[in-house]
Amino acid sequence: MSWTSLLKKEWKASSTMFGIGLLALLTIYLLIYFGMGHYSPFLLLLAFAAIFAHLLAVGLDLLGSLRKEWKENTVYIWMNLPLPGWQLLLSKLLITFIQFVVSLLITLVFTYIFINRAIDLFQQRVNGQEHAIAMETVRSTFIEMVPYFLLVIPFISVLLALGVAFIFLMSKVTRPFGGVIGAVLIGGFFYGYILLIHTNLFATMTHWGFIRNFAFPEQIMFQGGSETAIDVGQEILHPLYIGQIFFGVVVLFGMFVLLSWLLDRKVQVG
């Protein structure tokens, strides 16, 4: 037995929706591109919103995939497959993640294109030189932040996805309050996690194996309307350590093992 069959099935189950979503994304980005010339260069901010919307992307897709098994009654096949729970879940997560990465990369590329277009558009304006210079800082900041985005957004997105999957599976473990219990447990876990990362203990545990510093402004303020302005804040350093990545991977792994155990031992078809 091989779980490539599962991967193929998951890809086929989601590829149509993924294709439609990609087409919609490209259409929206083309509209933004042309809209920047017609209306305002600040429409590029929608691309930043799209980058951050990716935080929820894996969770929503994974939830959709799990819900579909139950909604279309294919759960009777899916759960009767003797493959271990981790394979069933990982195949869904992997396909969702690949689609997420494609979407995120397209969004990052378009964001870069939009920033360059905004610089061009500001340079063409009579009083736009100041904005063009500020946008150049935004561009260099964006380039600096791309590796950071590529590390942090997938991590948070997968973490949230595992949380959502936990709530969903809990709702199938015990009714009618399994989902609520799951939400409370996962809410408590995330709250504790946020508290932990601000402690000295966390720093002690994770600040080893220095990789590099990311230097970017504390904030970039865009002001639209008749008096447009771009304020770039003071630059601060964000160090990245192997220990932080290792800790993140351990957390994801732990949550994944828990979900696999739940699926194998506790989850019910209906």
């Binding site: 037995m1 091989s2 779980w3 069959s5 599962l6 193929k8 099935k9 497959l81 003797p82 493959l83």
Partner: peptide
């Protein structure tokens, strides 16, 4: 094919 690949 799917069953062949996923069930013993």
């Amino acid at each position: 094919h799917f069953y062949k690949g996923t069930t013993p």
